[in-house]
């Protein structure tokens, strides 16, 4: 009888030892942890999108300016070109600033090319 009681008490003590660590960690504050995680995830994804978007805008601007300069060179013109892009997710050229000495005929030809090939109307073209 005493042996059985001793075994039972020993078993209960061991069970308490095994389960003891669990009790300390019930307070997980899951809500706060998930909110923090959500913020971290959003920040990382936004950062990646921002890097990609900046690189895309830079690339489109460079290629559009290179296109205009190439066309101008074929007309014998030496110009400085600055292209402005829209703020959309897929930015498109919406304006161009051209600086340099140009004859009226060459200017008209270049304006027509920019309007036809790049979709930038006369109001978007600024000659300095």
């Amino acid at each position: 009888m005493a042996g059985a009681v001793l075994k039972m008490v020993t078993g209960l003590v061991m069970a308490a030892v095994i389960l003891g660590p669990l009790e300390k960690h019930w307070d997980l504050d899951l809500n706060r942890r998930f909110q923090e995680l959500d913020q971290q995830v959003s920040a990382a994804v936004a950062k990646g999108e921002e890097i990609s978007q900046n690189a895309l805008r830079q690339r489109i601007k460079q290629e559009t300016e290179a296109y205009i300069l190439d066309k101008a060179a074929r007309l014998g013109l030496t110009l400085e070109v600055r292209v402005d892009l829209s703020d959309d997710d897929l930015p498109v050229p919406v304006g161009v600033t051209l600086r340099g000495a140009v004859s009226p005929a060459a200017r008209a030809e270049l304006e027509a090319m920019i309007r036809q090939d790049l979709g930038i109307g006369k109001e978007g073209q600024v000659w300095v």
Binding site: A44, V45, K47, G48, E49, S52, A55
Partner: peptide, 14 residues
Amino acid sequence: LPVMAAALAGSGGT
């Protein structure tokens, strides 16, 4: 993981 997540988001996998 944040660097990988940013890189994958940058390559279209938002």
